[in-house]
């Protein structure tokens, strides 16, 4: 049976004046998965999430969320989507408790128990006003609120990069549990390590185009990592244009990645293969560098 589609977007275009941010982006998001949306700065990740959250309009294309067209069902759809962005700035002259009492009335499925539970686990004082909280704390509260609306889709935009390590692990686990309960997460981040073993799917967006949309465990299956050492550095193989540097290792050797299909002679590289696993970071670097 085909897994249910949460989002089906076709040929989405978004421009700001002369600047094209999204260029005919096709994207399908399946229910229950944890998507890592990766891309360099300015690639269009936040814009894509804003469009999916109904915050921003797109110039062309079609978007269906939960089988309904976004254009005509914005209000219904918003009830099912939680959106947390690092750009969100709660600037209200209210205490957190007062604010969320008002906020919760707008959502049909608001889970007060979950909200109170998470807030107390993180020891936030609800009687304090928003401006007394740090940016990271505000983001944590926003993420808790987004979970408490019992969404089916959670869009998380760069939020975890402002969290401390403990908070990051705590919330990543929360998001994974949310997916295990049938929810769907699309998360953008520049700290790729944090989702290395958590994201079920990886999407790479570069210059407004989707380069890769695949299950994370398959993201590296067509790629080969080789290691350049002092002994083999003069070999002609390392002069190949299709080879992309992805990092220097602790033993001062350098790792390169290439696509299997782009190297004809398999025998040529067998002796240089780096046996270590290709990380998501390296996959991201390979695709974005190759695109450039």
């Amino acid at each position: 049976m085909e897994p249910a589609l949460v989002i089906s977007a076709k040929k989405i275009c978004k421009t700001y004046g002369d600047l094209t941010v999204l260029n005919k982006v096709d994207i399908n998001i399946q229910k229950g998965n944890f998507y890592a949306l990766l891309g360099h700065n300015g690639a269009g990740k936040s814009t894509l999430l804003k469009i999916l959250a109904g915050q921003e309009y797109y110039n062309k294309g079609e978007i269906e969320i939960f089988g309904k067209k976004l254009d005509g069902h914005l209000k219904e759809v918003k009830n099912l989507i939680g959106h947390v962005s690092e750009q969100i700035n709660y600037n209200v002259p209210l205490s957190v408790g007062e604010f969320f009492i008002n906020y919760s009335k707008l959502y049909k499925l608001w889970n007060e128990g979950l909200f109170q539970d998470l807030i107390s686990r993180q020891s936030f004082d609800l009687s304090r006003p928003f401006n007394e909280f740090s940016r990271g704390q505000k983001m944590q509260i926003a993420l808790i609120a987004a979970l408490a609306i019992e969404p089916e889709l959670l869009l998380v935009d760069e939020v975890t990069s402002v969290f401390d390590v403990c908070a990051r692990n705590f919330y990543i686990k929360l998001l994974k549990d949310f997916c295990n309960r049938g929810g769907t997460v699309v998360m953008t981040t520049n700290v790729i390590e944090e989702i290395q073993n958590n994201a079920t799917d990886t999407i790479i967006l570069t210059k407004g185009n989707i380069l890769l949309n695949t299950p994370s465990h398959q993201a590296a299956q067509d790629l080969v990592k080789v290691r350049k050492t002092k002994e083999n550095e003069q070999h002609d193989f390392f002069k190949m244009k299709q080879l992309f540097w992805v990092g220097t290792n602790s033993d001062f050797t350098e790792s390169y990645i290439f696509h299997k299909k782009e190297c004809v002679d398999k025998k040529e590289y067998l002796s240089f293969i780096d046996a270590r696993e290709i990380t998501l970071n390296e996959v991201f670097m390979f695709y974005t560098l190759r695109q450039e």
Partner: peptide
């Protein structure tokens, strides 16, 4: 200025435009 800093989350609320 206050209003515009709140615009993002206001727009994500499930209220009609």
């Amino acid at each position: 200025a206050n209003y515009s800093t709140n615009f993002n989350w206001l727009l994500s609320l499930p209220i009609s435009r």
